[in-house]
Design a protein around this nucleic acid. Structure first.
Length: 542
RNA sequence: GCCCCCAUCGUCUAGCGGCCUAGGACGCCGGGUUCUCAUCCCGGUAACAGGGGUUCGAGUCCCCUUGGGGGUACCA
């Protein structure tokens, strides 16, 4: 029986790197008919944010990654929040202490820092000196009374090499002395990650640990701990890392960075109103631009929205808000460091599960290519069922607060149908926003008006279109098409010369779904009203 | 500094000693379809990081160099 787990620390939204790790573990469990566990690693009080767990859970749900054990669903090996498992960790810490396999330390962070600095100045690696005699309980009491911090360190056996058998990388050997003693219990009484992960993976029965390459160096420590506690060693798979276009690990810092660069590239940014939009002070803005501090994500998002700039998506929720489908994300993320071994690329969850295995994971890092992601999204928009697409679209509209969110399903279905070929849901929303604004509130694009209405007798043609529409008995996309094509033929001009003025009149821009559908969806009354308004508004200016 | 991992088109990758004059996809460039945008169709461009071995034969195995990434926390 295969048991895998995803163990995020709740520090904020789930980012794509974490989503990929979750996905690989989930795919493997599903492929093998095993169990997938969600465990929250909240052992660092300083880093945890209260809502982060909910955000991570939401993001996983959106992706369609479900868990058999974990928060909200329970399970036989709970609790699934490490902060609620303190007594369990304490038992094992005591055991190691009693067996002389771990020892108390009283160093202050400052002392350790000084030792490290000294080592690096001498171009030496820092090695913690294990005392010849381990402190006893009296020493602990004395240290406590002196106000010194008390931590517990694991004494890593130094006589044997430790071999990590990684399914992706093969055997990786760490010589004796290369793995040094490390803290397993912090001075606040919480276990460190290294300890909690080992205990929980044992107790929860994890058979396979699929995680990022950044954990490879931690693995010998974990194995030493497993040996000392008499635990199994799970199968390890250290995946390649996903890097961003700007080089380096795909990081949450990219969004603030992109925004900062954008602001700095503006010749006269209105910093005051921008700070206001972000809900931060002008001092904070100053500090942000000088790379001293970074406002929180909502502030960054708000400022980006205020400027109308598109920040690179990093968190799963960013992709949702940009109009990507969960199917796209799952497919694309799965192909970052894995492939099915044939030429298939566009796949749904079931196909991925059926094809997934651990032997086809690649060793080298991969770059997150947004262009390819977009092409995958185009494919999935065409591939998912109309009902599923409608569901995704409604969720998207609600998330971004679009006025279209209130539209009936039938109307939205029509919109999706005529927008097939769109690359993102955002594109569809923007392209059909004109359907949801008041006739008098159409936002006319200056260059579009200039280019289409003022040239080639655009307004004149528009007036004729209006006249013919008024005379139209039956109103369907087909009859509208007949009118427009007939008019173009009659005037010996291209259809574009007829369609574009009409498009600008009803949409305000030169971009919309096919004009016949656009008119039909808007309704003839509204169309005639907008034609009249456009002519009144622009005729005298020509 | 030390330790570890990695290395095929711009990008994701196929390739597990001869099937490779290196395949696919995205991008890009050119052409076509079209009422706009997008889609769609056709064509093209483009890679085995460098140097040594091993072998009858190396993209595929070994070593070195270079480059990239990661680790070196009372973060996970």
């Amino acid at each position: 029986m295969v048991v895998t787990r995803f163990a995020p620390s709740p520090t904020g939204y789930l980012h794509v790197g974490g989503a990929r790790t979750a996905l690989f573990n989930w795919l493997y469990a599903r492929r093998m008919g095993g169990t997938f566990i969600l465990r929250i690693e909240d052992t660092d009080l300083k880093r945890n944010t209260p809502t982060a767990m909910q955000q991570v859970i939401q993001d996983l749900r959106w992706l369609g990654i479900d868990w058999d054990e974990g928060p909200e669903v329970g399970g036989p090996n709970g609790p699934y929040l490490q902060s609620r498992r303190r007594d369990i960790y304490d038992q094992y810490i005591t055991k190691l202490l009693d067996q002389g396999k771990a020892y108390y330390c009283f160093d202050t962070p400052e002392e350790l820092e000084a030792l490290r600095r000294e080592a690096s100045e001498g171009k030496q690696g820092f090695v913690y000196q294990r005392p010849d005699q381990f402190p006893d309980t009296r020493d602990v009491e004395r240290a406590r009374s002196e106000g010194r911090p008390v931590t517990v360190r694991f004494a890593v056996p130094q006589d044997q090499p430790i071999i990590v058998q990684d399914v992706i990388r093969g055997d990786v050997t760490f010589g004796p002395g290369e793995v040094q003693d490390f803290i397993i219990q912090k001075s606040d009484g919480f276990p460190t990650y290294h300890f909690a992960v080992v205990v929980d993976d044992e107790l929860m029965g994890a058979t396979h640990v699929i995680r990022g390459q950044e954990h490879l160096m931690n693995t010998p420590s974990h194995q030493a701990l497993q040996a000392a506690l008499g635990f199994r060693t799970p199968v390890y798979a250290h995946m390649s890392v996903t890097v961003s276009e700007s080089g380096g690990k795909l990081s949450k810092r990219e969004r603030p960075k992109a925004l900062r660069e954008r602001i700095k590239s503006m010749n006269d940014p209105d910093l005051e109103s921008l700070a206001l939009a972000g809900g931060i002070s002008t001092e904070e803005m100053e500090s942000f631009l000088n790379k001293k501090t970074t406002p929180d994500m909502p502030a960054i998002d708000a400022m980006a929205a205020h400027l109308g700039v598109h920040l690179p998506e990093i968190n799963v929720v960013d992709f949702f808000r940009s109009g990507y489908l969960p199917e796209t994300m799952v497919n694309f993320l799965a192909l970052l460091g894995w492939n099915p071994g044939d030429d298939r690329e566009v796949m749904d969850r079931e196909e991925l599960i059926a094809a997934f295995n651990l032997d086809r994971l690649s060793k080298s890092n991969s770059l997150f290519d947004r262009k390819k992601l977009m092409s995958f999204n185009t494919e999935h928009i065409k591939r998912v069922s109309p009902a599923a697409l409608l569901g995704h679209y409604k969720a998207f509209l609600a998330e971004i607060g679009s006025p279209a969110a209130r539209a009936e399903d039938e109307r939205l279905t029509r919109i999706l149908k005529v927008c097939l070929g769109a690359r993102t849901l955002e594109e569809i929303e923007q392209k059909t926003r004109f359907l949801f604004v008041d006739n008098t509130k159409v936002d006319y694009d200056e260059t579009a008006v200039e280019k289409v209405l003022f040239k080639h007798n655009g307004l004149g043609v528009l007036a004729e279109v209006g006249d013919q529409f008024k005379a139209l008995a039956e109103i369907t996309a087909e009859s509208i098409e007949q009118v427009l094509r007939g008019l173009a033929d009659q005037k010996q001009i291209g259809l574009g010369k007829v369609a574009q003025p009409l498009r600008v009149a009803i949409c305000g821009t030169t971009i919309s779904p096919p004009i016949f559908d656009s008119v039909d969806m808007l309704g003839m009354d509204n169309t005639l009203a907008r034609i009249r308004i456009a002519i009144e508004k622009f005729d005298n200016k020509n």
